[in-house]
Write a protein that binds this DNA or RNA. Structure first.
Length: 265
DNA sequence: ATCTATTCCTGGCTGC
DNA sequence: TGCAGCCAGGAATAGA
């Protein structure tokens, strides 16, 4: 599942294929992925020039000379350059100079939306996890009475974390997912911010986590899954203390933790 | 403000 | 071998 590091790798790898190019022809498939009049959207996009490709949280923002495309990969979305169509192709962009960018999405939880201004879903996001100032993060954490894991998953609080990275960074910060956020000490919250930066940067450098079928814009898999310490390691020994890693459910999500290292306070 | 359950989707897995 | 049933989960939504 693409989270911040995976989306960052997609943006970096796909940008050279998009930047400065003109959309010669576009095509959309599933109404789940692209709501509204898909043929009309395709016509609107014809001739649009791509001026900027960036990321906020898990959203890919493609600025055009008029409006922008906001792309979310959901669970199984892929944005790949010069790839063949598949039965799961729900977005198809022919660019000038014969380049093609394909959006594939088996489960169709992703989305491709056009808007004139800022996409409302992007407007609702909190600060990006990679650029949120430590002070804001610490203060935000300590002012919320909710449990840590649901809060970190809340994109309005901080944008970019998903199930895998929340489990990974809570383990590394030695915090229990059910711990009440406001009860974290100021140094503990600052430490969590630092861990978040390190884990995300480390994963970006490793090309992200390829758990099921994640690939970047050039079809490359990441290797950060080999560096996961708790996610997907149920029953295996904790890499710090040797106790078996436990899988529970928190906020309807599979949650991995070491009950020895992560004590609830 | 916070929490829980439900909905979308389908490949892959489990169990009979 | 075949197939029904369940699971994974990001985000929106309804309801408590």
């Amino acid at each position: 599942m693409p989270e911040l590091p995976e989306v960052e790798n997609v943006v970096r790898s796909i940008a050279p294929y998009l930047l400065g190019r003109t959309i010669a022809r576009a095509e959309f498939g599933s109404p789940w992925v692209t709501p509204g009049d898909r043929d009309l959207l395709a016509r609107q996009l014809q001739g649009r020039r791509i001026e900027r490709v960036r990321r906020h949280g898990k959203f890919i923002l493609v600025d055009l000379d008029r409006g922008n495309l906001t792309i979310h990969l959901g669970m199984t979305g892929k944005l790949v350059a010069n790839a063949p169509r598949t039965p799961y192709t729900h977005g198809y962009f022919e660019l000038d100079a014969d380049a093609v960018v394909v959006y594939d999405d088996i489960r169709q939880f992703g989305s491709i939306e056009w808007s004139e201004g800022v996409n409302p879903r992007v407007a609702a996001l909190g600060p990006d996890a990679l650029t949120v100032p430590p002070g804001d993060f610490v203060q935000g954490l300590r002012s919320r009475k909710t449990k840590l894991k649901p809060l970190l998953l809340n994109q309005a609080f901080v944008a970019g974390l998903g199930n895998i990275y929340v489990d990974e960074l809570l383990f590394r910060a030695k915090l229990h997912p059910l711990q009440i956020a406001s009860r974290i000490s100021a140094p503990g919250a600052a430490e969590l911010h630092g861990v978040m930066q390190r884990v995300l940067q480390e994963s970006i450098a490793a090309g992200g986590s390829s758990i099921s079928d994640y690939v970047d814009g050039e079809g490359r898999k990441g290797s950060f899954q080999d560096l996961h310490r708790v996610y997907g390691r149920e029953g295996k020994p904790c890499l710090d203390c040797g106790a078996p890693v436990v899988r529970t459910v928190v906020a309807q999500r599979g949650t991995h933790l070491c009950p020895q290292c992560q004590k609830r306070r």
